[in-house]
């Protein structure tokens, strides 16, 4: 699986080029019938089959930043892209633009914070990126307005089969799709690597319109809060209990036939799965479901702790079970 390589790439929504180029390169060696890059940068891979038209999708983009201002002192102000909690930003490193200029998200030292400010959460609008430039001119020589920035966070394996990286949401889905493409299926398979999911599942809209599928399965990284201090009812998914099957989220009520088929193949092939314990969040499934005349959709997801932070954590077991479930699902169509 290419998760380490995939998470190392920068792919802020709208700037997915690095991820797209990597995936296109990998697809070259695989047996496919057609590869399309559309106007928003989605990659759609067709593997012809006799059965129903099935689309599987994962998004290439990740949450990140766009540089919005260079201050007179040479610091960078930024806009967040996608849902980033300001709590995870202070004291973190970022890489800016194609040249990966290193920068840090500093904040006034704790010694200098007065009273309640010590307890308050940082405000995103008060934060800035420090690239060490001594002047606006020096900064402008390295960074342009609109350049993207991503967290600088390496891939680490630790604990009992755990992986820490940035952008596990949804490079884990991309990695699974690349594995799926290595095998053959009876269904008429469309594998879509989508863009701009984090800003409103937008790439998937046009990808779904183009494919016009009978069924669609979205493979995601999803919220996981199975540890202290979350209370029992706040634990929306758990590590090491297999992929999460969504019944309903903010974007769609999943198709009962698809959900039933997922559970059915999981049981038959002894694949561990869990049901998502919240209706919060949204995925490409919403866009795909309402495309054209409607598509029967489902979502399976790998639980990621600290999602949308520089240090999200997933379990290898969940990833491999998620791949097994996706393959079993696709092979169930004939």
């Amino acid at each position: 699986m290419l998760l380490k390589e995939l998470t190392a790439l920068a792919g802020v929504s709208g700037c997915e080029d690095e991820v797209r180029d990597f995936i296109l390169e990998k697809i070259k060696d695989l047996k496919t019938d057609e590869v399309i890059c559309d106007s928003m940068g989605n990659i759609i891979v067709h593997k012809k089959g006799k059965g129903p038209k099935v689309m599987v999708a994962a998004h290439m983009d990740e949450v990140g930043f766009l540089i919005s201002q260079i201050t007179n002192e040479g610091y960078l102000k930024f806009k967040t892209v996608g849902g980033i909690d300001s709590a995870v930003l202070v004291s973190k490193r970022v890489l800016i633009g194609k040249d990966k200029i290193p920068g840090v998200l500093g904040m006034k030292a704790v010694h200098l914070q007065q009273g309640q400010a010590r307890n308050n959460k940082a405000n995103i609008k008060d934060l800035y990126i420090d690239i060490g430039a001594k002047s606006k001119e020096e900064a402008e020589g390295k960074v342009k307005l609109g350049d993207f920035a991503v967290f600088d966070s390496d891939y680490v394996e630790f604990g009992h089969g755990k992986i820490k990286a940035k952008a596990l949401d949804d490079r884990v889905g991309c990695a699974i799709l690349l594995e799926i493409l290595k095998e053959d299926y009876d269904c008429d398979l469309y594998v879509a690597f989508t863009t701009q999911e984090e800003v409103g599942t937008r790439g998937a809209i046009i990808a779904a319109n183009r494919v016009n599928a009978d069924f669609a399965l979205v493979i995601e990284g999803t919220t996981c809060s199975d540890i202290h201090p979350a209370k029992e009812h706040q634990k929306v998914s758990f590590h090491d209990r297999g992929p999460v099957i969504t019944i309903m989220d903010g974007s769609a009520i999943m198709d009962k036939e698809v959900v039933g088929r997922l559970m059915d193949v999981a049981k038959r092939q002894d694949i561990k799965y869990q049901l998502k314990r919240t209706t919060a969040g949204g995925t490409d499934a919403g866009s795909i479901q309402r495309s054209n005349g409607g598509v029967k959709v489902g979502v399976i997801a790998v639980p990621c702790r600290y999602i949308h932070s520089p240090s999200s954590v997933a379990s290898k077991f969940d990833i491999s079970e998620c791949l097994r479930l996706a393959r079993a699902f696709l092979k169930s169509f004939n």
Partner: peptide, 14 residues
């Protein structure tokens, strides 16, 4: 030496 991550709240708990 063990690697660790300090937990951050997921979106639904913020």
């Amino acid at each position: 030496k063990l690697y660790g991550v300090v937990g951050a709240k997921p979106p639904h708990l913020i």
